[in-house]
Design a protein around this nucleic acid. Structure first.
Lengths: 333, 333
DNA sequence: GTTCATTACGGATTCCGTAAGGATG
DNA sequence: CATCCTTACGGAATCCGTAATGAAC
């Protein structure tokens, strides 16, 4: 079909798989099979990518992508497996570069962290201040996103580590390190009736409209579980992605805020009252997620230690070498 | 030190890590740092390899090998880590090729097995006959070697699977699948006094010189353990690597042979008498070892099933996903 | 008609072999 | 002096960009 070149040069094309070819198919799959977009994101030309992909397919003797005419429509079964392997290979080449950098000078490099608003805004600043002081030549990248986004980013190797309370457990190529426990507090205006109670119950809270995180953020699931368990269905006045928005609406009198305890700042939030709610919603655990096959540079250990002092390099190494037994669901039913 | 090129062309050499460079450093480390030998084994020129290695080192900004003058003397710390990663990467590129071949035609390909004399000579032939019948277009390679050699071969990816009773557990990148239990028998000439006893004890055996496997082969350790436990120290007339040699010397009257039960062939060995010794030395287990990150082509599952019918693909997959908790030694002391 | 992948082609780069050079033991 | 790595150099292959072609929506 492809012209009559079937009988010419059939003999052996000294074609050796190249890392760039793997990079290309990996990136194409990340760009929804749009080769042009991929070319842009890699700062190269699109025919170049096209060519290398076909070359790889020819060398392997199979199609990685299904095509409708010239459009790439989907990834073949073999392609899925191959692209997954390509991702692992590219991750390892990154590790080789990291190793080299570590041995050249373990004080320079880049640390990319993906995290949520709560961590970035309230928890990380002192840690980062200390870290920058100790490693002034390490460039820091903070990516903010939803728990799901940041879990994906660390899983794909876009960033070195993710810090979040949710979603990290769902990726089985990640090591998940529990860092610290936290609970929630209620935010209300000083004149709110709840401030008069000695012992607040879930019933009390549920009698007001509540203002808290949207699903999937900062332990929202815990809040739902607690109400669910007592068959309460409080009215939700507003759901927000971050505590700053929640506070704003509490100040407007829209309801009772439920936020992570870290998010209450006695100084900046002096106009609001924080009421402990640890007995209402229990504890949540913030975790660090890292690719299991990441090369751990010294400063990564150090950053983790600053963030969670009990996590020594030894404990981390131990956590990596253990593979969580197939799918341990914390709440099984 | 290396000339004064420090200030020329410092700026940016558009150098991208290449798979061949990784192949080269990996192979050099396999060839005791002899670049010339590596070049021969790869059918290429030695300056070409040298060049690529230096190019890689320059790109990474570190030395992978330490040099005394021009000789490569050892692998640097960073080099060790990098070469290990290179090995994993190369393994994964092999997997990509295997996947492609599987999807192109799952009836063609190559299966390389490393195994010991005992398996190759007495156990594998019927399995291989069946396999060749079912997959006539799969090319089979059988590498014979010592348990340690074959364990290394499969660990490095030189072969697809290893079959042995010993040594496989020592490599933590292997999945080890127990296949079948076997015990030993005593081989003597018909006129030997042992043939007159109803119940043979270790004491009886130890009163004659024994002829059996050398250390590290075919469960020799089990034999030593059994004698040790009873504080017996039989005289060893001869130690051999395989049962055929043992039989030869039993025929010469040099002593009592102790061989794996599979090694006794009632027809070919009709001039000798086999006496069951399972109560003396206990059982051993023959295992298959495969790299944990191997891509399992259909015919590999099939071969394993022919060899050990209980090992279904499901069980194998399960065994892979489990990581044996750090070093489970079957016989700990 | 717009978007997008493929083919064609040409300049620059890279690869890889041979030959010569220098260091080590 | 034998071994072995490095440098030098030249032909061949490859890469990668621009431009033109063609298919799909």
């Amino acid at each position: 079909m492809q012209g009559r070149s079937c009988f010419t040069r059939q003999f052996r094309k000294r074609n050796h798989m190249k890392l760039q070819q793997l990079r290309y198919i990996w990136e194409i799959s990340r760009n929804e099979l749009n080769v042009s977009a991929t070319a842009d994101s890699l700062y190269t030309s699109q025919p170049g990518i096209s060519k290398q992909v076909r070359q790889l397919e020819q060398e392997l003797g199979i199609s990685i992508f299904s095509r409708n005419g010239k459009q790439l429509t989907e990834i073949t079964d073999a392609g899925k497996l191959i692209i997954a392997l390509a991702g692992e290979i590219l991750g390892k080449t990154q590790n080789i570069r990291h190793i080299a950098q570590e041995y050249r000078d373990n004080k320079i490099g880049t640390l990319s962290i993906a995290t949520t608003h709560t961590q970035a805004r309230y928890v990380l600043p002192p840690v980062i201040r200390q870290f920058m002081q100790r490693y002034p030549a390490i460039k820091l990248n903070i990516h903010q996103g939803s728990p799901m986004q940041i879990a994906e980013e660390v899983s794909r190797g876009v960033v070195d580590m993710a810090i979040a309370t949710e979603a990290l457990d769902q990726f089985n190529n990640l090591v998940v390190l529990p860092c610290y426990e936290w609970s929630r507090c209620l935010l209300v205006k000083p004149e709110h009736p709840l401030t008069q109670l000695d012992e607040i119950t879930l019933n009390d809270v549920a009698s007001y409209p509540i203002v808290t995180y949207v699903a999937g953020f900062t332990g929202r699931s815990r809040i739902d579980q607690a109400f669910e368990k007592h068959h309460l269905h409080p009215q939700s006045a507003l759901s927000a992605v971050d505590a700053d928005v929640i506070k704003t609406y509490v100040r407007l009198g829209m309801g009772v805020g439920i936020v992570a305890q870290m998010a209450y700042d006695p100084v900046a939030d002096g106009d609001l009252v924080a009421l402990d709610a640890s007995h209402l919603f229990g504890e949540s655990i913030t975790k660090i997620g890292l690719r299991r096959d990441l090369f751990f540079r010294e400063f990564i250990f150090e950053f983790i230690r600053l963030f969670a002092p009990e996590l020594t390099p030894e404990k981390i190494k131990q956590a990596i070498s253990f593979r969580e037994m197939p799918e341990i669901n914390p709440v099984e039913d």
